[in-house]
């Protein structure tokens, strides 16, 4: 840092020209300006979805034709819209719970134990994330149709849940694993040192500390499941989830009611996330003087 002793001498005399100053300002704010542009780009389709939920459209909802509240007044008016939403929520809830429990157990085993076959388990957890959804969907379709159908499990709600748990599992393991790895092992040793049995150490110390990671994994799993279309399309048979309903409808024109439901889910999710953030920052500041 040889520059420090020279700066005081140089700075008062140096005044860049106007054009140069604009250039400097742009250079300094380039990252933040482009970030704002990218965020606007990310929100553009959401804004479109929102705007066209008020479109008084005819057969197709592509061109703006006039304002109406009617889609918001009864989004369930369109056959299948709300039924598919309920299915999606049910599938999401069940898959999230099962995948989170199984994934957390696996993550604990992967971080806390040494065992034969650990490298193989690592690969088994990783490969589903590196496999295109269409391949997983195709593979599941063949086994469900050619194998599971023989034992009385046909394509439908059950097979959707089976598939969703599978593709959520790896993401849960990776998320929870990162959280466990970042824990200071001395904190658990301290609990044992203070007379906590292994079970007490887990429930009083380890579990509360990895809980944010588990909740994050659960949120990730739910959003993956709720938004999945490609795999679901293969394994759902006659059952319809919300993304499938929208996709099928898109052939004839998506009704604005779908926009209402989609945008409401967006608002709900954002409120949940922001709410969680606010609660945690309130909790953190409560003890401050």
């Amino acid at each position: 840092m040889t520059t420090t002793d020279q700066t005081p001498v140089a700075s008062p005399a140096y005044r860049p020209s106007g054009a140069k100053r604009v250039q400097l300002w742009l250079a300094n704010h380039f990252a933040i300006l482009s970030a704002i542009l990218v965020l606007l780009y990310l929100f553009l389709p959401v804004a479109y979805t929102f705007a066209f939920s008020f479109n008084d459209h005819g057969k197709t909802n592509i061109v703006w034709q006039g304002f109406t509240w009617k889609h918001w007044q009864d989004p369930c008016r369109v056959a299948g819209a709300c039924e598919s939403l309920v299915t999606s929520l049910q599938v999401g809830a069940i898959s999230t719970v099962v995948a989170t429990v199984l994934g957390t157990l696996m993550a604990l085993a992967m971080v806390r134990y040494r065992f034969r076959g650990k490298a193989a388990s690592n690969v088994l957890i990783f490969v589903p994330m590196a496999t295109p959804e269409i391949v997983m969907g195709a593979a599941l379709l063949t086994i469900f149709v050619q194998g599971f159908a023989n034992v009385g499990i046909s394509l439908g709600f059950t097979t959707i849940v089976f598939a969703h748990i599978m593709f959520c599992l790896s993401f849960v393991v990776v998320t929870v694993k990162a959280r466990i790895q970042s824990l200071d092992p001395r904190i658990e040793e301290a609990a044992q040192d203070l007379y906590a049995s292994p079970a007490q150490t887990f429930w009083k110390v380890t579990f509360p500390l990895i809980l944010p990671g588990i909740l994050g994994a659960a949120m990730l799993a739910f959003s993956l499941s709720f938004d999945d279309f490609i795999i679901t399309n293969f394994v759902s048979g006659n059952e319809s989830t919300f993304p499938k309903f929208v996709y099928v409808a898109s052939r004839r024109g998506i009704p604005a009611e779908a926009n209402v439901i989609g945008f409401s889910m967006f608002v709900l999710a954002v409120l949940l996330v922001v709410g969680a953030q606010v609660v945690s920052s309130l909790r953190a500041s409560r003890y401050k003087e």
Binding site: P45, T49, V63, V246, M265, V273
Partner: peptide
């Protein structure tokens, strides 16, 4: 900002893609 990056993805993937078909449409 993190929430803003993730938030659009709570609207359905298909709906967003369909919105792009409106944005990029000839009209």
């Amino acid at each position: 900002m993190m929430i803003c990056v993730v938030a659009p993805f709570f609207t359905s993937f298909i709906l967003r893609t369909f919105a792009w078909s409106q944005i990029l449409a000839d009209e």
